[in-house]
Design a binder for these strands. Structure first.
Length: 461
RNA sequence: GGCUGCGUGGCAGAGUGGUCAUGCAGCGGACUGCAACUCCGUUAACGCCGGUUCGAUUCCGACCGCAGCCUCCA
């Protein structure tokens, strides 16, 4: 029975979908003005695995991940670059897709964009004004009146008094209350703007998600996810907006993933201590990055370091080594495996405990390696089982050879093969000095040899 | 200052009131011409101080340390 830690109640709860057999999932996506960094990669991978596991568990999942394609940073960046906003956002949407695809992240069912949701956004603001939750200020902005919403603070565990005492925002004259947040921003000269009942302007960040989630999934849906930093104020404000406008609970389960850190500090754009996905993928295979992300529980902090990536690489190499040169039994269904299936399921059912699930897979790998010596059939079965588990976590999605040989071109491969041939000739003649010399040469090229059962295979170090 | 959360062996990282995590690395052994791979075995941990308990790393409390949010952020 699947249990999910709900940030709203701060407890693990049994997951019960609103509609039996169906899951409606919304995740806050990127603001597209720059390349994805490892923190973004974590969100994508985490909710990719959530989606994969829900589907593997038999749910019909509708997965929505929005794109914020209009905001202050986008406008500022476009101006800096001297390019149009549309050209900037289209470019970075393409870059994001490239990174996500590289990491094997399954595309969401829909990726709504803020700029294409204006009618819904404006209609929702109108509703909020009608119901008394929002007001138009003299300067053309529209604000949400926080004091009108009883549950304000319930997600982030705060109340309005606490928020007031911790107030660090410069007071904005147009607001009735410093805690009120903007739903619609009046356009400044030279800024892109949309027509609205309150004059030309553009939406505030929070209202976009409330409008898009309702449009794509309805007023009440199952799971809403995102990074921990969105809990306040973004998700708190979403609740105020959605529940204010619709008069019903908007989300049953809130899921927040932990941060990626560097040297025990949050990786973020503002601190400038981030690595882009592009940079990391130049050095490590995408599945190594994915494996690294899955070694810790999604809610824990994840410290990024070369050492951790190297460990992930070594571990994944062992899996691919086990899968190499063996024909995996097709269509093995892990749920049917009586030994490992229940252990894997128990791990994943426990709030998506991927670290524990990986330990089950390590046992399967060992079983595979042992079976190899005795029974090909058994070994093939375990290989198939490993593949089946891998499909849930998005691992082992490439051929073992492709992973282990890692982007060798044909010329290089031919050269390696020739050297191996030469070494094996020397070995046959018991010319160990020569054989070792050739092996050293290969090692220097970053090639590791493995002599198995009369056959020499190689891989990249 | 307020509110969260965390502190596990050399590193990464699960978990549990009494018995094995797992991975990376290390050590010993088997295999190998030697290595690598693989297998077998193995060392080692639960921030600090109290309390509850027959027994606590696990529950409770204080303390120390770290991180996050309270402003844009995945």
């Amino acid at each position: 029975m699947l249990q999910i830690h709900n940030s709203l109640t701060k407890k693990k709860e049994v997951f019960t979908p609103i509609e039996p057999g169906k899951v409606k999932l919304y995740v806050c996506g990127m603001t597209v003005y720059d390349l994805c960094h490892v923190g973004h990669a974590r969100v994508m991978v985490v909710f990719d695995v959530v989606t994969r596991y829900l589907r593997a568990s038999g749910y019909d999942v509708t997965y929505i991940r929005n794109i914020t394609d209009i905001d202050d940073k986008i406008i500022a960046r476009a101006n800096e670059n001297g390019e149009s906003i549309q050209s900037l956002t289209e470019r970075f949407i393409a870059e994001m897709h490239q990174d996500a695809d590289a990491m094997g992240v399954v595309r969401p069912d829909q990726e709504p964009k803020a700029t294409e949701s204006m009618a819904d956004i404006i209609a929702m603001i109108e509703t909020l004004i009608e119901k008394g939750f929002a007001y138009a200020a003299d300067n053309g902005d529209v604000y949400y009146d926080v004091s009108e919403f009883d549950g304000y603070g319930k997600l982030s565990g705060r109340n309005i008094e606490e928020l007031r005492s911790g107030e660090r925002v410069a007071v904005n004259e147009a607001k009735n209350d410093p805690l009120d947040f903007v739903l619609w921003k009046a356009a400044k000269p030279e800024e892109p703007a949309w027509d609205s009942p309150w004059g030309n302007g553009r939406p505030g960040w929070h209202i976009e998600c409330s409008a898009m989630s309702a449009t794509c999934l309805g007023e009440h849906f199952d799971i809403h996810g995102g990074g921990q930093d969105l809990q306040f104020p973004h998700h708190e404000n979403e609740i105020a907006q959605s529940e204010g406008a619709h008069g019903c609970q908007s989300v049953n389960y809130w899921m927040h993933n932990g941060f990626v850190r560097i040297d025990d500090e949050k990786m973020s754009k503002s601190l400038g201590n981030f690595f882009t996905v592009r940079e990391v993928l130049a050095q490590y295979s995408p599945e190594v990055v994915r494996y690294f992300i899955l070694t810790s529980h999604y809610r824990s902090p994840l410290n990024y370091s070369d050492e951790s990536l190297e460990q992930a690489k070594s571990a994944l190499t062992r899996y691919y080594t086990a899968l190499r040169d063996i024909e995996a039994t097709q269509d093995v269904v892990w749920q049917n495996d009586e030994e490992f299936g229940p252990r894997f399921q128990e791990a994943m059912d426990d709030d998506f405990n991927t670290a524990l699930a990986l330990s089950v897979m390590a046992d399967v790998r060992q079983a595979l390696n042992k079976a190899r010596e005795q029974s090909n059939e058994q070994a093939s079965y375990f290989a198939g089982l490993l593949q089946s588990f891998g499909d849930v976590l998005g691992l082992f999605q490439q051929a073992a050879e492709a992973f282990l040989l890692g982007g060798q071109d044909d010329d290089e491969s031919a050269k390696v093969e020739a050297l191996i041939q030469a070494r094996n000739t020397a070995r046959a003649e018991k010319d160990w000095a020569k054989a070792d010399q050739v092996r050293d040469e290969l090692n220097a090229m970053g090639i590791v040899l493995e002599d198995n059962a009369g056959k020499t295979t190689w891989r990249k170090a």
